[in-house]
Amino acid sequence: MGEWSNGLCGCFNNITLCLITYVAPCYTAGKNAEAVGDSCIMVGVLYWIFPLIGIYFAAQARGKIREQKGIEVSVLYLSKDCL
Rank of each mutant, 00 (worst) to 15 (best):
T16E: 11
G63Y: 03
N6E: 14
G10K: 07
F50A: 14
L83Y: 09
N6G: 13
V75R: 15
K69D: 11
I15Q: 13
V75A: 15
A35Q: 12
G37M: 01
I49H: 08
V23A: 13
Q60G: 09
P25A: 07
F50E: 10
D81N: 13
Y47V: 06
G2K: 06
E34D: 12
I71Y: 00
C40F: 05
P25E: 05
G44M: 02
T16D: 11
Y56N: 07
I71K: 03
Q60V: 10
P51A: 07
C26E: 05
G54K: 00
L19S: 10
C26T: 04
T28M: 07
V36E: 02
K80N: 13
T16I: 15
V43A: 00
G44A: 05
E34A: 13
F12C: 13
Q68S: 09
T21E: 05
C18W: 03
C11M: 08
A33C: 03
Y77N: 15
F57E: 00
Y47N: 01
C82N: 09
M1C: 12
W4S: 02
N14L: 06
V36H: 01
A35I: 10
A29H: 01
I41T: 10
M42P: 03
V36F: 03
G44V: 05
I71E: 03
G30E: 00
S5E: 14
A33F: 01
Q60S: 14
K64C: 03
G10A: 08
V73G: 11
V45W: 04
L17H: 06
E34Q: 11
E34K: 06
G44C: 03
N13R: 09
